[in-house]
Design a protein around this nucleic acid. Structure first.
Lengths: 205, 205, 205, 205
DNA sequence: AATTAAACGAGACGGTACGTCGAGTCTTATC
DNA sequence: GATAAGACTCGACGTACCGTCTCGTTTAATT
């Protein structure tokens, strides 16, 4: 199952000098460093190239836009974190993982900015969707399934992921162990058949 | 108690030609238009000035940064929407209001971008906090109080506001009447003393 | 009679901040210096701007192309030298003036290069024609007229100007007093009615 | 007598794959075409390689600089034209040959540009000297010798070659049969012992 | 009515970064 | 060892905006 992949520019054939793997690594590392230091808005291609000790053209040969680069440098690791799904993951673990992902300083700088850009760039939006939102949805849905009761998983994803995102990036409140447990308890209360299920609410427009 | 207000620059004295109210209106209107058309990332001060038929200096005389301008042009209306709190607002109305606020095309373009910038700019963050987050928190807390049971309002705000934000700006799912009702039902299930309350969860780290 | 003027970009109206005369002077001086130091081929706009202590945009606001800049910086002075025509200029003086003009180190670097570029750029060619060739033709023709005999002035210009140009820029031979006198003697021999006049040569194709 | 030859890079040994003669021809042809189409200033090595269907390295293996390539592609044919000297060449034929040489469109584009570059590159200057100026000087001198009178041949070369060059490349006047005859007549008037000889002019500085 | 002082439009200024192009060199696989 | 292909570093291109500045002009409130 080939995952909808990187937005990296692709090489033509097997001809010519191969691309330098070292350059790749240096660029991604420099991007992560600078995201942490100055944030997304002040991140410049020239700055990344200089920090990586690489020519601008080497960078442009690989990524078409700043957003693409940042997605690969900072969001792809998050995506992997979300995708790497154990069979016996508890609900707490899943939420804890989300929290952990959004707390990485370089991701934090990039996350909202990329989402903002995705609002205007459907290609970028699709990529974020496939690599971040879908895995998060899967993560939440898997727990729901395992715990054996079925609320609308879409709502649950928005609630859980939204709460984590809002807590960390907007309210800037504590995203500690208590927060994780409270959030999970909240989700359980909802999905618990004994409680008032959201899915009871009749027919909708 | 004067609310930490607009980030507009203030006039020096009462002397000289007064600032043109028409210029103000034209600039804010142009900003809203361009936010809708090209988004925040591609919004330029020069573009706004040109569209408004105003000199750049007229703009800089009023706002110090692009973010300040956008806050006044696109987020302040949202803030007013949130602040204007009737005594007999139902929970559904409150959530519906949040949904409505985030759906304005020009706000949508600006919201995440300003939040992203706020992550690096504490002054901006404080302003967003005071004008947007606090009112939203108040809105949610007021409902909770009226409905007579006390969950941690901070968590509830993150859950409700986060869910709305995630649904509209990230998942891009339907933010329709059903969504509003389901979300409210979910919140009620949690805060209902008969359900499993999040606040029961013992001691916290 | 307005002479077809400079290829400088023109200002729109009397509005706005006026262009800095100091910037003008600094740019032209820097251009002349660099022409002397590195020649035309290696002259860069960035180099000129840096040397002049001026932003690139300030330069581009005034001149559209490198050739235009060089014409103003190095060839215009030559044009003035040629145009500034005394009534009692001797033939020797005229040729000496031509020699002097082509010997300026910064002009030397620029002259052939601009002529080469003019071969492909009709606007540039016209300008060179009006500011350099025509005045040179006038200079030569004036002498011919004063000395009272009429060879085809066009031929004479090509012969005299061509000889000077070839001697200095191509052969790199000595362009000394002897050369001047020999060249004038040659021209006189031709235009002298007692000699074989070129214009006698019957019917032409 | 080995003529100071081409500036082509020389092969190392007789080992390995021999250089492709087809590549040579393709490169030179492409160079001539592009000189005619875009001129010297806009001629790029990459463009030539692409047009010739050859890798850049193949080109660099043969010529060190753009000027060298252009000399071989466009000026060498002119040099051959000048060098190929019949015993019974008339003065008119010689001048006509010069005219013809400078009228080739690809040479025209290159001639002044290479001369301009030669002003800063002594190696290039030497090569142009040997392959173009010397043969032209010889051509003129041979006529002078045959017609039996001795003006300073250096001056004569500058006068004749300069006049042709100036007429064609600078004035852009008609370089027709009349021009050729007038120029020859002029040269004869000078070198004719009955006329005023330039070399009579007394003592020289 | 004249004065005063700031607002205004226009646009130049020194900068920074953009994304592109071409230079000349290097690396790989293929002939 | 030559070749085609295409990577590499580097430097400059010409453009777009930034935020500041300097003009001449306009507009109210104060004298």
């Amino acid at each position: 199952m080939p995952v909808a992949g990187t937005r990296r520019k692709i090489r033509s054939g097997g001809l010519g000098r191969p691309r330098s793997a070292a350059a790749d690594a240096a660029i991604l590392a420099a991007t992560r460093e600078l995201l942490g230091e100055v944030g997304y808005a002040r991140l410049t291609i020239e700055g990344v190239a200089a920090r990586a000790g690489v020519a601008k053209s080497t960078l442009y040969r690989r990524w078409a836009t700043r957003a693409d680069l940042v997605v690969d440098a900072a969001l792809e690791p998050v995506a992997e974190l979300l995708a790497n799904r154990d069979a016996d993951l508890t609900a707490e673990d899943a939420v804890r993982r989300l929290v952990e992902a959004l707390r990485r300083p370089e991701s934090q700088a990039a996350y909202l900015a990329v989402l903002a850009e995705a609002a205007r760039d459907d290609t970028l939006h699709a990529r974020v969707q496939v690599r971040l939102i879908e895995p998060a949805r899967e993560l939440v849905a898997a727990i729901g399934r395992r715990e054996g009761h079925g609320t609308d998983p879409d709502l649950l994803v928005d609630v859980v992921a939204g709460a984590v995102l809002h807590r960390i990036l907007v309210s800037r409140g504590a995203a500690d162990e208590r927060f994780v447990r409270d959030l999970v308890a909240l989700a359980r209360a909802v999905t618990d058949p004994s409680g008032v299920s959201a899915s009871e609410s009749g027919v909708h427009e």
